[in-house]
């Protein structure tokens, strides 16, 4: 990831630090990241903030050997699509080397990158195995 700049990172701190999503009461569905407009109900939706508990299951995964520049020093690393208990799926790194489809994981708090050696440090969620 190239330098995203402090405001762009800061704007999503609630989501990146705490997995805050949204819930539409009309269709009873939880979304992460938050949706201003419910994708199913659109203007009929009744959207409110919902904090997710951060546990879920690995749907699929890869080990990244050729990352984007921001993650060059970190490869190889594990990346997965995790289905959270509340329903939404997220793309996130897994801090364990060994993972399998179906593994139960929980969110942890890690350093995601930085805007260069003297820039803002980006923190956010990754996941670790629960076994």
């Amino acid at each position: 990831m190239t330098e995203m700049g402090a405001p762009r990172f800061w704007r999503n701190i609630q989501q990146r630090y705490r997995l805050t999503g949204t819930r539409c009461d009309t269709c009873d569905t939880t979304y992460f990241p938050p949706r201003q407009l419910c994708p199913e109900c659109r203007r009929e939706g009744d959207v409110e903030e919902q904090e997710l508990n951060g546990t879920g299951t690995v749907v699929t995964y890869t080990t990244v050997h050729e990352p984007s520049p921001e993650y060059e020093g970190d490869s190889p690393y594990s990346l997965a699509i995790v289905e959270l208990d509340e329903g939404p799926r997220v793309t996130a790194q897994i801090v364990d080397d060994e993972i399998q489809v179906g593994d139960e994981v929980e969110a942890c708090f890690r350093r995601m990158g930085e805007g260069g050696g003297d820039g803002v440090i980006y923190y956010g969620f990754k996941f670790r195995s629960l076994d």
């Binding site: 995203m4 990352p67 990346l79 699509i81 790194q93 995601m112 980006y122």
Partner: peptide, 13 residues
Amino acid sequence: VFPGGNTAALYAM
């Protein structure tokens, strides 16, 4: 992309 994905990683998944 912020969490570490790119097109190859996504297609790999």
